[in-house]
């Protein structure tokens, strides 16, 4: 797939980032997170991107209502075509199993479809706490997936923010999260991650801990 490099606004700073930026967002303040995410999604709509949000903590309907409360006014037609809120578990998993290859393929298809539909690109954000749910198989491959995303995004430049709740993930996992996201949002700042390890290197040394069990 060919594309020309495109820059997008993420919402925290005026700085523009290349489409296909993969960021992690480690947070502990829900209100701050919602306000930032609302702005991030709104900027995507403004940039005529296909916007997808993967919700885990609450239902899509509740998320939609909260976004409206935060000023993200979604017109009906835009609501139906430009913007969607899905359950994270249904997006990341196939049934009750997480298979990174399948999810990565969904990511590729999502981008390709949006381009076919005439959008300028695709913007996503997912609440990653779904991996902590009981009974989900394959969650030990999360960091493998996150690392591979960086490879996929080279050809399918989906702009992505992965949200990690510092109150729910342990410190070791959070450090792993740093290893697989080239950019991170931390305490209201977008920083280039010095702990980021390119996919090949990360996967060569990575031994997945069973931190979520």
């Amino acid at each position: 797939m060919t594309h020309t490099e495109r820059f997008v606004s993420m919402g925290i700073t005026d700085e523009q980032f290349p489409a296909g930026t993969h960021m992690c967002y480690i947070y502990k303040d829900d209100q701050e997170r919602k306000e930032f995410i609302a702005k991030y999604l709104w900027l995507g709509l403004q940039g005529h991107e296909k916007v997808n949000y993967f919700v885990d903590v609450i239902s899509p309907e509740e998320m939609r209502a909260q976004l409206k409360e935060l000023g993200l006014n979604l017109p009906v037609e835009m609501d139906a075509h430009d913007f969607s809120i899905s359950r994270a578990l249904e997006v990341y998993c196939t049934g009750s199993k997480f298979v990174p290859e399948d999810t990565l393929q969904k990511l590729r298809s999502m981008y390709a479809l949006s381009i076919d539909e005439g959008y300028s690109g695709t913007r996503i954000s997912g609440e990653m706490s779904w991996v902590l749910r009981e009974g989900v198989e394959g969650t030990d491959r999360l960091m493998e997936y996150e690392s591979l995303v960086n490879t996929v995004l080279l050809d399918y430049p989906v702009t992505a923010i992965c949200q990690y709740d510092a109150r729910r993930f342990n410190g070791s996992t959070l450090f792993d999260v740093l290893n697989v996201h080239p950019m991170m949002i931390i305490r209201g700042q977008v920083v280039r991650n010095p702990y980021y390890v390119v996919s090949e290197k990360f996967l060569a040394n990575y031994v997945a801990p069973r931190f979520w069990s």
Partner: peptide, 30 residues
């Protein structure tokens, strides 16, 4: 510069980690 970046990242990350156990885990890895 990369050390400074790491220091900054660690510093900022420590700010959002909720408890000593999480901080210790994180530092262990860092």
């Amino acid at each position: 510069a990369d050390v400074l970046g790491k220091l900054l990242l660690i510093h900022e990350t420590l700010g959002v980690l909720p408890d000593y156990s999480t901080i210790a885990d994180f530092l262990q890895r860092a």
